[in-house]
């Protein structure tokens, strides 16, 4: 560790295995530092997930001893579960709209706030993070869209004589998706947004000076050529947060319209998963569902990674 030059010279004389052993020995402090985290992570995250993968190949229902059914759960999902196809379709619609828009918002808003005077930034950040910090966020939306005449929206529209009877906003199939998407976007500034705020503080300011000399003349060029490329790790973090959030979409629908909305409009894979996992106790089937979703999110993540590589070019 202490002498890098020596290490490089000696590498030529070692086989791959020797070199790896040497590196392990030299950097053993790394293993010590990572050990406490990895130990707990292994026990409480990896082991449950890996065992779930095994469970997804069985008909485990929490009561009987499970039998291996191998790919049967996965086959049923695609061939014999119409509701899953509906749920998958809804999840994809939500994800395609809420994911990208929410992601772009999480950067653009953070960047706009960063353009303000430093003295008011903390408060403005709180204002935009308010949907994630208020205890009972959805109550304001359920009151707004409440189906009786006491709901604000119905009340206003009736006073203005635009409608003459209250509209059942949250149980009418046509309104469910737009309303849930709107509320989801409104609440999408979470940890990715905060990470962007923090990331903007870490951009090396000498780069901006150099940029000004090289002909950057306005803030839009500056953000594209300097800020964004210096923040790629934070952008990646926010992307993973957005994608995961978008594909696990369901909580907002449940809060506003219940866990089985009218005609299954807005019924997502997350609902389907909790239906099988915590109502019907068909754990094998629920596990198969979550692995399918994992593969989907994983695939999308690879695409995003490729797109982010193009930023600033």
């Amino acid at each position: 560790m202490a002498n890098k030059k020596e290490k490089v010279v000696s590498r030529k004389e070692m086989t791959m295995a020797q070199w790896t052993l040497h590196q392990m020995n030299v950097n053993k402090i790394g293993y010590i530092m990572i050990a406490p985290f990895m130990l707990l992570f292994l026990v409480f995250t990896i082991v449950p997930v890996v065992l779930s993968l095994v469970v997804s190949l069985t008909n485990f229902n929490m009561i009987e001893w499970p039998d291996f059914v191998f790919m049967q759960n996965y086959a049923t999902l695609f061939l014999d579960d119409e509701l899953f196809i509906t749920a998958l379709k809804n999840t994809l619609i939500f994800a395609v709209i809420v994911g990208p828009i929410g992601y772009v918002m999480s950067f653009v808003v953070a960047w706009f706030i960063n353009e303000l005077a430093p003295s008011i930034r903390a408060i403005v950040t709180l204002v935009f993070y308010a949907p994630s910090i208020s205890g009972n966020v959805y109550i304001v939306w359920t009151t707004l869209f409440s189906g009786d005449s006491k709901g604000w929206l119905n009340g206003w529209l009736m006073q203005l004589n635009i409608i003459d009877a209250p509209v059942q906003w949250l149980t009418t199939a046509d309104y469910i998706m737009p309303i849930c998407i709107m509320v989801a976007l409104w609440g999408s500034l979470g940890m990715g947004f905060l990470s962007n705020i923090a990331g903007l503080q870490g951009v090396d300011r000498s780069l901006y000076e150099a940029g000004a000399i090289d002909g950057v003349t306005n803030r839009w060029q500056e953000v594209w050529y300097i800020t964004l490329p210096s923040m790629k790790p934070q952008l990646m973090f926010a992307a993973v947060m957005s994608i995961t959030g978008a594909f696990n979409f369901g909580g907002i629908v449940t809060a506003l319209c219940g866990s089985t909305p009218t005609d299954y409009v807005g019924y997502t894979v997350a609902h389907h998963m909790s239906e099988y996992g915590s109502v019907r106790w068909e754990m094998g089937y629920a596990a198969a569902l979550s692995f399918l979703m994992f593969l989907l999110v994983f695939g999308v993540n690879i695409i995003i990674n490729k797109l982010l590589a193009k930023v600033g070019q």
Partner: peptide, 12 residues
């Protein structure tokens, strides 16, 4: 592991 939904593995 971040991409796996929170619901998975809860019973385990």
């Amino acid at each position: 592991s971040l991409m796996i939904g929170a619901a998975i593995g809860g019973e385990i």
